[in-house]
Amino acid sequence: MSVLLRVQDLDVSYGAVPAVQGLALELPAGEIRAILGANGAGKTSTVKAILGLVRARGTIELEGQPIQGAPAHRIHALGVAWVPEGRQLFSTLTVHENLEMGAFARGHGDGFAARVDDIFAMFPRLRERHHQLAGSLSGGEQQMLAIARALVSEPRLLIMDEPSLGLAPKVVQRLFEQIQEINARGLSILMVEQNARQALRIAHYAYLLEVGRLAAEGPSAALMASENIQRAYLGG
């Protein structure tokens, strides 16, 4: 299977404080892979480096093409979309305008209306809220919109940062099902989660970070079965 994303020797630091050190990870096309770890383990720094939002050293390749050092808007144009931690919608824009921003790089001519329709079929609630300001949506609806905004550009790689954060358990259940459905349509997903148990249920493979370094990696089933990991991360 072809490798969509390959990260090697990744170092991210803020001033003198290292956030990520020597990280390596891969995402084969079509898979869901998760980056797990506690607060401050370097998960968000890792995805921000891939997105071009923080300076990093090391190699980041998208389908073999190096992208490290490129500005964020160029990396997005190569087919990388982001569902940020805490949604981070454009709250003063309407639901529709948020989707237009999602398709900013692609333009709104060819197929935009069809893609929006497609997304509304997946999230019917958003269709009803079409002309409302994004800031007025409920938490679950905001998460739907954050995902919709990322999907409307038809990315090759979807990066999700803590999608379950702050959502009710029932909503989280449904959200993870939807992430699986999106993946089943062929989209590759790199997901950061503190909720390790939930994430391992849908991810094919996972990386465990501890204070900026890779502590363990493996197929989700193997990680779930490992006693050390059960104790440290799954509260087992």
């Binding site: 997105l51 071009g52 939002l53 500005p71 964020a72 808007h73 990396i75 997005h76 144009a77 979309a81 982001w82 940020p84 981070q88 454009f90 709250s91 003063t92 824009l93 921003m101 999602g102 900013f104 790089a105 692609r106 905004r149 550009s153």
Partner: peptide, 11 residues
């Protein structure tokens, strides 16, 4: 509103 998110969406 959010310069970082706008950049990540191609602006």
């Amino acid at each position: 509103e959010r310069p970082e998110v706008a950049a990540a969406f191609g602006v």
